[in-house]
Design a protein around this nucleic acid. Structure first.
Lengths: 343, 343
DNA sequence: ATAATAAATGAAAGCGATTACAAAATACAA
DNA sequence: TTGTATTTTGTAATCGCTTTCATTTATTAT
């Protein structure tokens, strides 16, 4: 009754089962050199006393927690939370547990938390949120340093160093295609509205620029607006758009770096009494549930997060199994057309 | 260069510092019976070799990970994700790490994951998401069982059993007040639209019923609509409302059990060409960022999640310190008025 | 039946920390 | 100076498991 298992040790089990602790250990770890009879007896005793091995003692022996660390910038971000959710699920399926750490947008915390995870003896670390990956070598040094100890998986980020593996959506390509389609459909005054300088963010921006240039609009004539406030403050985003308009920037199309930004464009249009999509076309990114919520419903890029996460997990398993693995895999996304675009 | 610290043990440090391992251990654990000189010497060696103690060995001795388990129904739910975020932050401040497990809405998983956390040697477990708490004793047995081993903290749930502590918003009170205010303002045909049978969900529903009864509307004449689909599928929620209307249910006010549901009411109004709030008043719950996104902006109940989480953490610290602690604390929320109500 | 081989089991040595207890060093008092 | 009290340090047992190696038992071939 009173937490039998909590104080049970392998010695107790071995005694009850009438075998040595080595045999018990073998049974529990699935060694095949145990006779069926013995195995059964041991298991029944284990069952009866609800015995669970002590993690620490186990770890001391094999030096692994069977646990993957997940370092996430901000788990209250819809997109990232979803990623964490998928990853946890996939890892569990593979028999791994996960520890989540949320660093916030602060370089010092990142380093600290990554080291924390390592000190917790995680077998690998997944970094979720491309803003974890900096632009300079110096910013990324802590990641490379960590990679000397355990494999690092980057979701939507890339660093060229040993033991670091990247699984990413082709954000460049996605925005390039969207921009191109919009332009070709006749909407030539396009505003690219973004709010992140993360790795993905930079990819998207480059995609936009390249597509515009491919259509003959040189960089100096491109409309690009950067929003630096909080990602939930839609009102502030709208204000920025109005400001831009006042300054004389013209646009019949807005391509946004995420759905929140796109939502602000929808609100802007409503305030300005612009018909969507007739007078203003809007494309979001991430295809989050917001896309379905807003009015009219938002056309948005879906980068197949679930697929990315599944792939990341299986790649990680390969890495842990010691197999050779490509350091980088890129997956294409897809434009989900709804009511804010007509092309 | 090559991961000095990874193989360093307390023995190495003791040797380099010219003291015994016991002394090193004392220094690292802040025992005061060490001379300043020795302490300094040891610390400098520790520093130099970037030594970090082995978690497993340490755990074997003290049998604690200094870690709190967080069991969350669904970390991709905006509200819950925010809770997890606050909790992690607060715990970190107190010197604790956290392991997050997302069980999904499945009873078997819950049990499994809770046990997993315990087997990972967490010092306590926080259960986030009131749908983790069932209605029947049988459903909650696994929690009570777990509470025999470690303290269990419930965020927005209540179970009367030893070693289980509840921190909750007064959902009953909040909905009661809102309903009452709406009714008193002259809107007497109120629809309560909800989507969850969780502990909180039941509290809210009761609050609505009680307020209506207090205003002379007996239960059989109350309008209550339950949505059983996915919490992100706004379109389906709208359809339910239209269905209800068709069936002849009249309402000039909608009180929703969360902001998503409320959002669907806003969409419903737009489709039905009803002016908000003139012809239809709408109140949401949670005051999530959605409230600011939708058009018109949503009046919503804010239950001060941040305060709840802060309080939960400090209560937990008290519990872990062995202090007597009230098994239940209830906090009042607040109605944040925006554009979907006029009262 | 016997030798050779394979399978099953057990004894014991770690893994790297904590901590009770003993011993040594230092401080203080008479 | 000597004895006592106090602080500092070290020795060694312990935590509960994994795993190597030696030993015993079962299986197969001759």
């Amino acid at each position: 009754m009173k937490n039998k298992n909590i104080n049970m040790t392998i010695y107790d089990i071995s005694e009850k089962a009438g075998v040595s602790i080595a045999t018990v250990s073998r049974v529990l770890n699935g060694s095949n050199n145990v006779s069926a009879k013995t195995k059964e007896k041991v298991l029944s005793v284990v069952e009866e006393y609800e015995y669970t091995p002590n993690l620490f003692a186990r770890g001391l022996g094999i030096n692994s927690m069977n646990t993957i660390g997940i370092l996430c910038v901000d788990s209250s971000d819809i997109f990232l939370a979803k990623a964490v959710y998928y990853l946890e699920e996939n890892l569990r399926e593979k028999g791994y547990d996960s520890i989540l750490c949320c660093s916030g947008y602060n370089q010092k915390n990142r380093e600290e938390y990554l080291n924390l995870l390592i000190s917790k003896k995680v077998d690998a670390c997944i970094m979720v949120g491309s803003s974890l990956v900096g632009q300079t070598d110096k910013e990324n040094k802590y990641i490379k340093e960590a990679a000397k100890k355990i494999p690092i998986m980057l979701l939507n980020g890339y660093i060229d160093a040993p033991n670091i593996y990247s699984i990413m959506a082709d954000d460049y390509q996605a925005i390039y295609q969207v921009t191109n389609s919009m332009y070709q459909s006749g909407i030539q005054d396009i505003l690219y509205y973004y709010n992140s300088n993360s790795y993905s963010g930079r990819q998207k921006l480059e995609g936009f620029k390249a597509a515009m240039i491919a259509n003959g609009v040189e960089e100096s004539k491109q409309n690009i607006l950067y929003y630096s406030g909080k990602s939930e403050d839609i009102t502030a985003m709208v204000a920025e758009l109005q400001e831009a308009k006042k300054k004389g920037i013209k646009f019949q199309g807005v391509i946004a770096s995420d759905d929140n930004i796109a939502l602000s464009a929808v609100k802007y249009a409503r305030n300005a009494k612009l018909k969507v999509p007739e007078e203003l076309s809007i494309v979001g990114y991430n295809n989050s549930f917001i896309a379905n919520c807003c009015e009219p419903e938002l056309t948005s890029v879906d980068n197949h997060l679930e697929v990315l996460c599944k792939n990341l997990t299986s790649t990680l398993m390969d890495v842990l199994a010691g197999e050779k693995v490509a350091p980088r895999a890129v997956f294409w996304g897809e434009l989900v057309k709804r009511k804010t675009t007509a092309f």
